[in-house]
Each structure stands twice: as structure tokens, then as C-alpha cells.
Amino acid sequence: MRVPAGAFGLGRDEVHVWYVDLDRWAPPGGVRQDGARQGASCDFWELLSDDEKARAGRLRSREGSRRFVTGRALLRLLLGAYLEEDAGREGGHAGGAGDGSGWVDLRAARIVERARGLRFEYGPRGKPALGGDDAGGSALTFNLSHSHGLAVYAVARGRQVGLDVERIRPGIKHELLAVRFFSPREAAALLAMPDRLRLRAFYACWTRKEAFIKARGEGFALSLRRFSVSVDPDRTPVLDDVEGAPGEVLRWTLCDLEPGPKYAGALAVEGRRWRLRSRRLGSCRLGP
């Protein structure tokens, strides 16, 4: 589970996005519906907190439980690597999270220990953040989304981020959903699109809106109909207006993601001056 050493050097003008195919990271024995780990060669289960294990146990499907455990463990390992990178640089170690070989091994004991010790805090609407001793000094922020077997993580420093990824389902009644959930401005723009673009436009609009409300940490307390984003999937996304908060238009930047075939994704980032770095995390077992 090796990543190039420079991957975890995160500047304040950067946002990192990681794509992970959760089904390629499946524990050899899977995860039972009660959340218990099967397969001694995988330590993902051991990285989770008690509340995460309880949540995995409440999921009804074995596949959903396995994906949840894998996704949370990988989130912890990635954040652990960023924190280890910060600690290494603060201590004068130029290699940061690396071992001097030009690579970072996410199985390294110090990264695994950091991952296991992470505490997450949750906002009033459920947005996760680093808690405890890790919350202050690093200024790391993050967000995550998953759809079917794909997980996407965004990591930034000193700015809020939100993201959404959705698997495209051609059979859904996207026009009716748009009229029901989108702002009148968005619904009209969608219905004016050519038929060949309308499904893509629906998912572009949906993921942009979800990314924005997740970045703000309000969840659906902010009605989807009270703000508008651009709909055209082939143009740079824009936050057009937010009812009662016109300053938000200048506060946030939207960006479409490229999660892969049959998926749509979007990212919302606080501020204007930043650049995106994206990576796909290859498959590997955590154990020996």
C-alpha cells in the first residue's frame, strides 16, 4: 500500500481528492453483518472506533457493511498519513510521512497508530471533522462521499470542503425530480437542455448542490430549492445565488470531478485561490 512521498504535502492553496474503488480493497473474508471482521490478513476493522464498528453492525447488507468498514479505514489511513507528514516536517524530517525511499507506506506503524487514534467530531447536521489533539494544529479539513463501490475523499487545509459522488442511473425520472427538488431556475434550465444532455445535466446539478450543502455543514436544513447552481454539464460550474445570503456566491467555488465511467461528482471549496490535485488509490491488502 505504497503512495509517492509527495502525495501528502498539502499546501493551503491546494485541495486533494482521492478516488477509491472499495470493492478492490475487500477484506479476504469479508465483514459479517454484525460488523465482526472475517479474514485475519486484514486489519481494517481494528482501525475503527467503537461507534464506527456499531454503525457497521447496523447495516443490513454484508456488502454495505464491508464497504463502510473499508471506506472508513482508508479515510483514517489517509488522514493519518497527512498528519504524519505534518509532524515529520515540523520535526525537521524532510521526508515527512515517507521512509526515505521516495514512497509512503500506509501500513507503516506510525501511520497506522495515528489512524487508529483519530477522533472524529460531528457538526449539528453530521458533518465530520477531526477532533481532539488533531483538530487544532493541522487545520486539516475533509469530506467524503460514496456511491455503490466508489468512495471519494477531499482533504484541504484551513478551508471548508464538501463533495458528492453519484452513480448515474439512466432509468430515473430525472425531469420530475428536478421539478420537485431543484430551484425553479435550475429546473427551467434543465428542461431547456437538449434531450441528449438532460440526464448528465441532472446529475451535474444534483452533485453540485449536494457538494455545496455538505461544505456548509447544513445538510438538508438548507432547502435545495433555496439556492441555484449552473446546470450545463459541459461548462464550468457556478454557484448562481443563495436565497437570503448573497455573499455566499463569492465565498464558494464549485468544481466538477471525474470519478469515472457511470459516475458524476462535484466539489465545493471555500475560497477562490486554490488548485486541485487528484489521485486514485490502488488496491492492496492492509495485512502482511
Rank of each mutant, 00 (worst) to 15 (best):
A156G: 07
G158S: 08
F142Y: 13
E186W: 11
R159V: 00
L144N: 04
G123Y: 08
H174W: 15
R185S: 06
P184W: 15
L118H: 15
L118R: 11
E166G: 01
D133M: 03
A156I: 03
A139I: 01
F120A: 09
A129P: 01
E121G: 12
D164E: 12
V161K: 14
A139M: 08
N143K: 06
L150E: 09
L177Q: 04
K127Q: 12
A151Q: 11
A178P: 03
R157D: 03
G126E: 13
L118Q: 14
G117A: 14
G171D: 13
V161H: 14
T141Q: 15
F142V: 02
S147F: 10
G149L: 09
L176Y: 02
A129R: 13
R125E: 08
Q160C: 07
I168V: 14
E166I: 02
G131F: 15
V179T: 09
R167C: 02
H148M: 07
T141G: 12
R159G: 02
H146V: 03
P124D: 13
L144V: 07
K173W: 07
R167Q: 11
G137W: 04
R159A: 03
V165N: 04
V152I: 05
P128R: 07
R169H: 14
P184G: 01
T141K: 13
Y122E: 03
I172E: 12
P170F: 14
G136T: 08
L140P: 00
G123R: 04
S145D: 05
H174I: 00
F182A: 04
Y122L: 09
G117L: 13
N143E: 05
G126H: 12
F181P: 00
L177A: 01
R180C: 00
F181Y: 15
E121S: 11
K173I: 00
V165L: 09
R169F: 10
A151Y: 15
G117Y: 14
E186M: 02
I168K: 10
P184K: 09
D133T: 06
E121W: 12
A129I: 06
S145N: 06
V165I: 13
R180M: 04
G126N: 12
F182T: 00
L177N: 04
H146C: 05
A129H: 09
V161C: 06
F120K: 10
V155N: 06
S147D: 14
L144D: 01
L150C: 06
D164C: 04
F181S: 00
E166K: 11
L177E: 05
G171P: 04
